[in-house]
């Protein structure tokens, strides 16, 4: 099951639907917040938890599918759509744009539970990814300017000698910078450092051969 705490946001303009969904989620032992419109959802302070957004397609202030597009750039939880009449084209559109599921009312408990679980799982993974990158960014920020010059050369695969020549410093000095970088970035090996650099999208500026000539 779900090891951590999480929260389900319900956005539906029908109060009966909101109540029913809250009740059902509560009976499952899950936390939920029910809101009547897209605007209410946006202004609601979201806790720092894995989450899922259950979104009615026919919202009073905006079409659910358009709202999905609008929030796709921010760090919003994965969406499970609810609709009164499922038509294939809008469900395809929703799924293509990243929705977890598209449920037609009335839906079964099982479909809803499965959709929420997979949405929360997906959000947990995304949050994990976001957190990791945040940590790596902090480590990157702790490097000195010189170390930040050395890092791309090292992860490009240049030999110490080549990298030192590139920067016009001695091989020993470069060696020192390199071990400091490994330490600060908490990289276990060069391979680990390359993976970290990739996540931080540090460009590979040199190929090993280029410096040799």
């Amino acid at each position: 099951m779900i090891p951590e705490d999480f929260i389900v946001f319900i956005v539906d303009d029908d109060p009966r639907m909101r109540e029913a969904l809250s009740e059902l989620l509560e009976s499952l032992g899950w936390r939920s917040v029910a809101l009547g419109s897209a605007g209410e959802y946006l202004s609601y302070p979201r806790p720092d938890l894995p989450a899922c957004l259950i979104l009615d397609v026919e919202l009073p202030d905006i079409n659910g599918l358009d709202f999905q597009k609008q929030i796709s750039h921010g760090a919003h939880p994965p969406i499970v759509f609810l609709t009164g009449h499922g038509d294939i084209s809008s469900s395809v559109r929703a799924i293509k744009d990243g929705a977890v599921d598209f449920l037609t009312k009335p839906f079964t408990e099982r479909d809803l539970v499965e959709a929420i679980q997979s949405a929360v799982e997906r959000d947990r993974a995304a949050r994990h990814e976001r957190a990791e990158i945040e940590t790596l960014r902090e480590r990157l920020a702790s490097l000195t300017p010189r170390e930040r010059e050395v890092l791309p050369l090292v992860v490009s695969g240049l030999l110490n000698k080549q990298a030192a020549a590139e920067l016009g410093i001695s091989e020993v000095t470069l060696q020192n910078h390199r071990s400091k970088i490994m330490q600060k970035m908490e990289a276990a090996s060069l391979a680990d450092l390359v993976r970290i650099a990739e996540k931080l999208q540090i460009p590979i500026t040199h190929s090993r051969r280029a410096g040799g000539i």
């Binding site: 029908d14 639907m17 029913a20 009740e23 059902l24 009164g84 009312k105 009335p106 839906f107 079964t108």
Partner: peptide, 13 residues
């Protein structure tokens, strides 16, 4: 359909 969906969900609860 709207109240029926609510009823079904409430019954599940």
């Amino acid at each position: 359909n709207q109240p029926l969906a609510a009823i079904v969900a409430t019954c599940h609860a």
